[in-house]
Every structure is written in structure tokens, then in C-alpha cells.
Amino acid sequence: MIEAPRRKPIANPFPAPAGKGIRKQKHSTNEIMTASQQSNPPPAPDAAVPALRLEQVGRRFGALQAVRNVTFDIARGERRGIIGPNGAGKTTLFNTICGDFPPTEGRILLFGEDISRLKPHLRARQGIGRTYQTSLLFTGLTVLENLFLAVRGAMPNRLSLLKPGAGDAALAKARDLAERVRVSNIAAEKIDTISHGQRRQVEVGMALASDPKLLMLDEPAAGLSAGERPELVKLIQDLPRDLTLILIEHDMEVALPNSDIVTVMKDGEVVVENTPDRIADDPVVQAIYLGGAH
């Protein structure tokens, strides 16, 4: 019953140019390599391969096409804002990326690997961390237990029947995380007894626990009071710069200062993609946000 740490051999669809470094792990797991391929160095983690590539991604729920023909690349270390009105398909796009509702059309490539058909827990192990628009936490467990599980989920020997001791590494890391998202004072409280703002902070902590390569925040400041909001914005600004980040935010005041590039969605499609300073002046965006002023 012990679940072995595994990594599915996935052929890299974007062979990198020759002469780059060799990723040992990939080399050993890729069983379908031919002799001629082996003479060329396999794909390298070079900067040319985007952190995330969406190729004509679509998601259909019955007759409803919630996301349609979305294509874009997100570079390593980029901070991407996704804005748009309610029902634009922002959260559905997140769900296709993390696997809760896999895409019905198109492909999703994470660091060059096609993850379109992977189950959500396998995508998480590939380095995706995400938060949810409405906090999805383990309400019967304490803050520390929530963070501990999120740390354990990224480690081998996930199915363990040994109680963590005082010196447990995952437990220590969970305590550090609690410190980092500023909830260490309530670490022993059960989730159903803490405030909404504190839950939003634990949400971010859960997503950071696996040291993700791609972090997706779905309206992290949703429902926060004016007093709680700066705390969370600070949390986002303090994230390491090399972390690739996608931020869904309804509120442009939060989205624009925290994004390198902003993608605007409407009716399931990408309508504009631009830098934050230009996006506010874009006629299409103004039409969406100001109710068709142009």
C-alpha cells in the first residue's frame, strides 16, 4: 500500500538545441529514446522553454464553452496577471491547468512537458501549486496540520503510518511556512475557528508548501477587508522573484502592480495581452470595466 514516488516518463515535445546541459532524471526515465536520439543531448532546462505554454486550450461543460482557444506562454520567473469580468473563464482556466477539470481541447505544457492528461495530484508533483477563490482548507484540522499535509504532499513516502516526531523535517517546514504567511500565532487553532482573512493567508501557505515552480493564485484577496488587504498584497510582493506566478484578480488595483504582463479574458477568450501600464488605457479593457464607454 505504500505509494512509490514516481515520475511518468513523458517525451519532451520541444527538443532543445544541441549542446545544452543534460537533465539526468529525464534521461533515466525516458525509456523510448532511440540510439540516434541518445547521441544528441536531451532537452535542457534552458530559458527558451516557457514555464507554462497553453496551446488552444478549451474547456466545455456540456453545451457551455467556458474557455475557448486560449493560447499564451508564460516565461520563467514571469508574473502574469489575469483579469476580466465575472464569468470570463479565469478560474476555469486555472482548473484546466491544475487538472481539477482537464481541458477538453488543446494542450498544456509545463516546462515543456505535456501535462494535459495528468491527474491533479500528479500535476501537483510536477511543481504546480495553487490557491482557490473560496478557501478550500481542511476545516477539521489545525492550521499547522493543514500546512504539514501540504508539505508532506510534495515529499516521497506520502502514505505514512508513522506519527511525526518533534524533530520531523516536514513539521519544521510547516512551522516556517506558518511564520512566513504570518499565522504562527494561531498554528494550533482549527481552521473552522479562524477568521476569513487568516484562512486566505493559510491558502497561500498551502500553495507555497511544495516549493512550486508555478504558483497560481486565484483572487487571493477576495473578500478581505481594507485592513486585511495590505497584509496579503505584501505577502505576494515578498514572494521570491524567480517563482513563476499567475495571479487572477478581479481588482485592478491589486492586479496591475503585481504583474509583468496582464492577460484580459472575456467570455472564455483572451481579448488583450499587454503590460500593466498600457492595459488600463486599452479601449477594450475600458469597455469591459466601464461598461462600454468607448
Binding site: K119, H121, A124, R125, Y132, L136, L137, T139, G153, S210
Partner: peptide, 10 residues
């Protein structure tokens, strides 16, 4: 409490 989150953390 939340099977979806359990998958999301791996």
C-alpha cells in the same frame, strides 16, 4: 473535509 485540495497538494 476537502478531497479536491488533497489532490491539489499531491
Amino acid at each position: 473535509d476537502n478531497p479536491r485540495r488533497v489532490s491539489a497538494i499531491g
